[in-house]
Write a protein that binds this DNA or RNA. Structure first.
Lengths: 322, 322
DNA sequence: TTGAAAGCGCTAACAA
DNA sequence: TTGTTAGCGCTTTCAA
């Protein structure tokens, strides 16, 4: 790969002059400019991003940390982020924490080594002290995305509010027993439960963590047998909902008549499932774009500013499964 | 961020000595080693990957180029690649070509700028002269993954063979008319068509490119109306199959009785669809791992070696939709 | 075993 | 308008 010094030699100018030409500095005579550009083109010059980054110039690299890229929602998020970043000339280093806190911490170190200009992250536990500590430790701006992290820059859908919306909807539809598939500290479940408690249905609400499919089938069967009241399952994400739907079909349970099912994330597949999946839609594209824009603004115009707390509203998408 | 020079100052040794300690060079006295390590730990030293990369050391960065990360198959592939690479100490710069050749070319330039040690790519047109030219131009090893690129390192499922397998299966099941959803130059279609021609069913075989859902519904309806023979749809990927299934349900067509549907990729969702999707499974994890291992071997033990042409066999997964 | 010096490719001051 | 010089943080000779 040809370097500026090499081009300088070939065109009989100094290396900084080559730098000026290649960086569009106007104070270069047209003839030299022409000569240098021609030479650069001829040899297919590409600047060395490492050398550039070394004396403090921005690397135009963004760290992106997600919990699980194989989940369609995060894959889509990563894609939107990549597109938005690329439009402004940034590339993406992608990390997958796989919900493993040790990996998450390790990745944050890697990010420091590569001198990324900023980080967009879906933390595993956004409210934990660890997460706040990591963010402080990094000397570049970090934006938390899809989760609320009080006191930090964050762009998210308020899961509590969304969970409450789901609760209202299910009650409206006449369901009287509720099962949430996911962790009991999940914001959606907290909001869901709270709304149900407010309606005196707290006792009819519980949760299960999905570990594997067979176990879920057993648990679901047991739970269904517990009471004849019309029941609904709120799945923590669309992938879970997909599996619930399949189990109910196996069990010969009619959806939505006997049991309602609602997912979360509004992944692409949901609209084509049989029955089409009711779910909660997050404005992924807008969220990604705003987060990237905010991050890049912070990078490009440094200076203190109050942390951005940007909630987006989720939208209930009612289809055939509730 | 603390640097080696800084640590050298604090511990009263020279900077190269710090370098020796931090890189595990054994020729350092234990006391100095101890002092330096303590200081590094105390200040949470992280090496500067840019500086390291600048004098030719490996950057431990891999470029990964896929056509569409929001497709579950590629998302999963990217994840497997990331995991395999990370195990050997490499990080990933991710690019999404979105099936846009201009983007693909641009990304390849970016990759050069960052001095990645190697590239794993899903090219848009693996057989094109352009792709071969790009690969030659890059001065680092490039491995083509999921597609066959003759003369280059490639790890793939032979789409032609897989397409033929699908053809056999559909004929066995009694289908007599065939529609492929995807590009007519797709290897799967080529193999599919050829196998069907060999059985005298070439005239009953055609393809449609999926542009949007409504258009597909019209085309599918028209095609179905053309003849009363039992028909089957071979979707170029599971996402297409999902949409085909939905359209057929709308059209009131029974699957698999009246029309069979088979997908490609065996994405996670397929096994939970209603009806459960027949599809072709690619050994993504093995393919990713072998490709990464080969790439890293080429990086770490440079030297000429003949290009690796590694086909994996696809596996027909017959479920309920055929 | 340790240090001094040079250099990777570039940008930024400063001089001319 | 152009060139000279220095330096980013590190590795790699080469001496001592």
């Amino acid at each position: 790969m040809i370097t500026m010094t090499e081009i300088a030699r070939l065109t009989h100018v100094s290396q900084p002059t080559v730098s000026r030409v290649l960086n569009g500095n106007p104070k270069v005579s047209p003839e030299i400019r022409e000569r240098v550009l021609a030479c650069a083109r001829e040899h297919d010059y590409q600047f060395n991003a490492l050398a550039k980054g070394l004396q403090g110039s921005p690397t135009h690299l963004l760290g992106v940390l997600v919990t699980d890229i194989s989940n369609g929602f995060f894959a889509d998020l990563a894609k939107q982020i990549e597109v938005a970043a690329r439009e402004r000339g940034y590339s993406i280093i992608l990390f997958n924490s796989d919900y493993n806190p040790a990996s998450e911490q390790e990745y944050l170190d890697v990010v420091r080594r590569y001198k990324v200009d900023g980080v967009l992250a879906v933390p595993i536990r956004e409210t934990s002290a660890e997460w706040h500590a990591y963010v402080q430790k990094l000397d570049v701006p970090v934006v938390t995305i899809t989760r609320r992290a009080a006191g930090l820059d964050c762009f998210y859908v308020d899961h509590g509010v969304a969970g409450a919306q789901v609760a209202e909807h299910l009650v409206d539809r006449g369901y009287r027993r509720f099962l949430f598939i996911g962790k009991d500290y999940d914001g959606k479940y907290l909001g869901f439960r709270q709304a149900l408690e407010a309606r005196g249905l707290g006792a009819a609400t519980t949760n299960r963590v999905l570990r594997d499919h067979d176990q879920l089938r057993r648990e679901l069967g047991d739970w269904l047998a517990l009471s004849p009241d019309r029941a609904a399952v709120f799945a923590g994400n669309d992938i879970y909902a997909l599996q619930v739907l399949d189990i109910l079909r196996e069990l010969g349970v009619a959806v939505p008549e006997q049991v309602g099912v609602i997912g979360f994330d509004d992944t692409f597949m949901g609209r084509f499932l049989n029955p089409r999946l009711s779910t909660v839609s997050q404005p992924t594209a807008r969220m990604a774009r705003e987060a990237v824009d905010w991050l890049l603004d912070r990078i490009e115009q440094p200076g203190e500013r109050p942390p951005m707390d940007r909630p987006f509203s989720a939208e209930l998408v009612v289809r055939e499964s509730t």
